[in-house]
Design a protein around this nucleic acid. Structure first.
Lengths: 334, 334
DNA sequence: CTGTTAGCGCATTCAC
DNA sequence: GTGAATGCGCTAACAG
């Protein structure tokens, strides 16, 4: 079906293949007249250069890969949006891979991308990723790479993150200032870089204000399990404030509160990391920490392209930390 | 960097390139002993076949493209999830393109994919797409293709949709049974196939139950504009029921209701198409029509792969209609 | 300014 | 069973 190629154009025009190739790429060493003839025919026949031939020849795929844990999550879809904006402008193609929080999948995808399929890749690691050999392997293969949000510090790769610790401190401080005396932190997989950032912001605030003892609960991907954990907490050691490290845990909290009739914000205040715009319509509206997800995607892609284009990075581009925003809503305000 | 190729393996093993190639592909005409030697070295050196060379040679990219209006939308991210599940299993790669509801982008992407970059593509058209020449062009180029959700009937391509009309009828009927006397339908771009389906379901129910005159308002992507439209409706011809064709319009409705103190569901009942799980946490919980988005992605990909693999489709696979689900929550229940 | 030639890395046909 | 040779479609170095 796809038989309109350089050869065919060349034959039709009685020119050499290379001449046609150069004419189409607007080489300065081709006469305007020839260029016009070539372009006219190319357009007429709907010529599209074969990308595989071109990639093979140029060692360049014009494609990047984004590896993320999941897409059904506002944070990551906003990141994708940012990536796409930059890639589209560069006329690059974007491959997407979902690990579903599975380390083996992540490893497999990474391995399968060290063969020239992509010119570079961006990754946010899964929450089951405990070793980083697969990332090191990519680094050794010298494939341009950038880590974002869920990073790992064990490798020397540019990273783009947010100010998890600082904004977590702020959120906890906010709860304290709104009168909370006993605040629990619902935390994620201890393997994630962001987990420790969020936790330590919480701990710092608790430390600074000497607001009772810290309560850190590691929650899971499983809603039922989480609700059990939260219900148990409420029964045994009931807090008056919850700082959830991810939206899911805030929702689990809302569910338990409804079940056992705890009213938010009167009896319990809740704040959570979340990029869900609809949090404003919750009952009550949920106070959130919003990460600049689009910006993360955009900046990550920009850094990646700088590496791909062999431009040298400023020191400030090797570790970019973007500010998140605390949005106070009724769930934390009396 | 990527210098471990067949040539290198062949040289190292003192074999011909073709032998190595065949050994790696488990050809029956290679001795087990040779296969072992070859595979051992390939593994040791981390050999990864160059996908561009392979694609060029085989006229097969092992890649599909998904073209969608946006990704920051639960419906489409769930679709992506379904697609990825099937593609991953087939060891296929997935390129993602966002049109941002821009017909020209859509056209551009489609054109740029008729060159062998992908073995097939799936598309849900933008709401500014009024002609389908670009889709016909792909069809003429004989590239395997599938349309989903936002389809066009002008071309003979397999389509995967939901029962928009039927479930819209149900939703409207539900409002009527809950006592609504004056129901307005907030509708989308008239260019979209799903717009007419949803509208006609609404109209049929209104017709059947003779529930006052129909009110159809075409809303836009712009929130401010929409709120104006809705506020005007409330001032001039206040309905007691709203059937929103997309989540966005339901949210606009919630916003206006808060502004001008209309209480849901007492004074106004609201139901909307939406794949947002968090709708259950709205104030009040929003009754929704949930589309089987994951399933749409999955089925679409499955049909696409059947076409790619030259399997013939059953008649029932050329037009798949999946059922949506009406979830009644407090926003429609007295 | 244009043509000839030589691969990019792989898969495949044809020899032996 | 294995090797040699060819070409997928394109780009680039080298000639003229």
């Amino acid at each position: 079906m796809e038989s309109v190629n350089l050869k065919k154009l060349a034959k039709e025009l009685n020119l050499a293949i290379s001449t046609v190739s150069r004419a189409l790429r607007d080489s300065h060493e081709i006469s305007d007249k020839t260029k016009e003839r070539v372009k006219a025919l190319a357009k007429k026949l709907g010529f599209q250069p074969n990308p595989h031939a071109s990639s093979l020849r140029k060692h360049k795929s014009n494609t990047i890969a984004v590896i993320i844990p999941e897409i059904e999550n506002n944070f990551f879809s906003q990141v994708m949006n940012g990536v796409e904006a930059v890639a589209g402008q560069k006329r690059y193609h974007v491959l997407i891979y979902l690990t579903h929080e599975d380390y083996r999948k992540e490893k497999g995808y990474l391995q399968s991308l060290t063969n020239g399929r992509v010119d570079g890749l961006m990754i946010s690691v899964s929450n089951t990723t405990s070793d980083f050999e697969h990332i090191k392997a990519c680094q050794d293969a010298a494939i341009p790479m950038v880590l974002f949000d869920r990073i790992c510090n064990a490798v020397d790769v540019p990273i783009i993150t947010t100010d998890d610790c600082e904004v977590s401190f702020k959120a906890t401080e906010h709860l304290i200032k709104e009168g909370c005396k006993k605040i629990a932190h619902l935390s994620m997989s201890s393997l994630l870089s962001i987990t420790s950032g969020r936790k330590s912001g919480y701990l710092k605030a608790m430390e600074k204000y000497k607001t009772g003892s810290e309560i850190v609960l590691e929650c899971s991907p499983d809603d039922i399990q989480n609700r059990k954990i939260i219900r148990k907490l409420f029964e045994e050691n009931r807090p008056d404030g919850i700082f959830a490290a991810v939206e899911k845990f805030a929702i689990n909290t809302y569910q338990v509160c409804e079940e056992i009739h705890i009213s938010i914000p009167e009896q319990l205040k809740v704040v959570s990391f979340s990029n869900l715009a609809a949090a404003a319509f919750f009952d009550p509206p949920l106070s959130t920490i919003v990460q600049p997800a689009y910006e993360i995607g955009k900046r990550s892609a920009e850094v990646l392209f700088k590496i791909i284009e062999h431009k040298s990075l400023f020191a400030t581009e090797k570790k970019i930390v973007l500010p998140s925003q605390l949005i106070e809503r009724r769930s934390t305000i009396q």
